[in-house]
Design a protein around this nucleic acid. Structure first.
Length: 426
RNA sequence: GGAGACGUGGCAGAGCGGUCGAAUGCGCGCGACUCGAAAUCGUGUAUACGGGCAACCGUAUCAAGGGUUCGAAUCCCUUCGUCUCCGCCA
């Protein structure tokens, strides 16, 4: 959420953010409510002050009863104002949770992903001297999965990897985790079961009513818990309510967890192969820093993902996502997409996002500034480290040989027991 | 799942209906002493919101929410969390 004072003083900027991000503009409503809420606060606080004064006189008063009566009278007088205040504050709070984050001035403006801009392209799509197979054919011919069987056992949008492919998935995860550790990230394995409020605090959903998440989040029946869609959600709340010393920033986490998504809005999409499941593993980069450090951290996180993709020897490109595509809570966002030969297209591998102080306001995560001792909200950022099995799609296809075997990039070979390729007829 | 104990400031720990935003100790900041440091002494040390140009004033917060009361850290209820024992179990 944004600071109400910021909204008061920059209503034009906020209105514009609603417009370019495609969210309903309720700023005027907010400003009107804000005025009334402050009026009511002033009135009720002054009355309460008077009441408190009388109350303090009671113990030493010779005749207590008139003071008690007066105190009761004041309570009755402010009751209506207090009720209105509570109601208006709840309303204001809900509306404030519907105001989107202000996008970066440099973000491409547009209604959806059609307005995204390619920032850079690294590597060239590989030329094959045979017709490259699609990921699912490679998985089939190597016996690396059993899609029909698993769908029967566990339902659609679940998967299993078998044999060398399963080893490969684990190796990639380990590789990325080790890489991030070497770059100063603290490795943390996150729970997948969490409370709805925790998910809400990550700021992907609007308003104060948690039920808006029901379409996207797996709720656990007869409990107050749900399944987290990403480690980001847990990491975001890791310092909630704390005031960190500025000297501790930036704090960098490499979170690993299984991720759970309903994918209700993606019915019929990506049903074949390894692209989209209800459950997948992800290594997540997450940073708490000062707002001043945020842009530098954004580049850092983005470069880490690019490095991973380069280590995996995949052709890729970096996208600047448009205002309409970046979502509710983001300042800026860069997708990293890898080349998928069978689709003749670049497909998303991960997403680097600057959130500004938006999440930190929801979790009340702050820091004390050096020198001034001022307490300020932290900025947060997140980026994918690697998401498997999705990353295996370009991996398998780009590294395939004519016999169906798959080459292992140099940097990964040690974690694959020194093998240079897997599968095929060998 | 059963039984019990408990949640107070950065930490430790008093308080158990008014004088408590909260003793005391530790930590930390500043100052004095010192060539410097340690020790010692003095002094300061939460956050949010509202009002004010400001100094400052007010309101709220002792896990969270609700209740009793003129008045709640203190009494009652609910929820969340922590610890101990038993049971069960990767």
């Amino acid at each position: 959420m944004l600071d109400i004072r910021f909204i008061r003083e920059n209503s034009d900027k906020v209105k514009n953010a609603c417009k370019v991000k495609g969210f309903e503009d309720r700023v005027d409503e907010i400003l009107k409510l804000d005025v009334r809420v402050r009026e009511l606060k002033t009135i009720t606080q002054n009355m309460t002050a008077e009441k408190n004064k009388i109350t303090r006189e009671i113990p030493n008063a010779a005749d207590k009863s008139p003071l008690i009566a007066k105190s009761k009278q004041i309570s009755d007088e402010i009751a209506a104002d207090m009720a209105e205040l509570a109601e208006k504050e709840a309303l204001l709070n809900d509306l404030l949770h519907r105001v989107p984050q202000i996008p970066d001035v440099k973000a491409p403006i547009g209604p959806d992903d059609s307005a995204n801009v390619e920032v850079r392209r690294i590597g060239k799509p590989k030329e094959f001297d045979f017709t490259p197979r699609a990921q699912w054919d490679l998985l089939d011919m190597n016996g690396w999965w059993m899609p029909e069987k698993i769908a029967q056992i566990c339902g659609t949008r679940t998967y299993c990897l078998i044999g060398e492919a399963a080893e490969l998935q684990l190796a990639i995860e380990t590789y990325v985790i080790q890489k991030l550790i070497s770059k100063g990230f603290r490795f943390i394995e996150c729970p997948s079961i969490t409370k709805p409020q925790t998910i809400f605090d990550a700021g992907h959903f609007m308003g104060a009513d948690l039920s808006v998440m029901n379409n996207d989040v797996f709720m656990l029946t007869d409990t107050d818990r749900c399944l987290a869609g990403t480690a980001e959600i847990i990491l975001n709340s890791l310092h909630s309510g704390e005031i960190l010393p500025e000297s501790a920033l930036p704090i960098k986490y490499a979170g690993f967890s299984p991720c759970f998504r309903k994918e209700a809005g993606a019915a019929g999409r990506d049903t074949r192969g390894l692209a989209r499941f209800h459950q997948f593993n992800k290594v997540e980069q997450y940073v708490f820093c000062t707002p001043e450090q945020s842009d530098e951290m954004h580049e850092h996180l983005l470069n880490n993902l690019c490095e991973v993709v380069e280590d995996l020897e995949l052709p890729y490109r970096v996208i600047a996502n448009s205002t309409g595509d970046m979502g509710f809570n983001k300042v800026k966002m860069n997708d990293v997409e890898a080349w998928v030969p069978s689709e003749n297209a670049y497909k998303e591998l991960g997403s680097c996002s600057s959130i500004g102080t938006f999440q930190a306001r929801r979790t009340n995560t702050r820091y004390r500034e050096n020198g001034t001792n001022e307490v300020k909200f932290c900025a947060t950022l997140n980026n994918t480290g690697i998401a498997v099995p999705r990353a295996l799609v370009p991996f398998l296809e780009n590294h395939q040989n004519a016999d169906g075997s798959v080459n292992i990039p140099k940097k990964l070979q040690a974690l694959m027991g020194g093998r240079t390729k897997i599968g095929g007829k060998h």
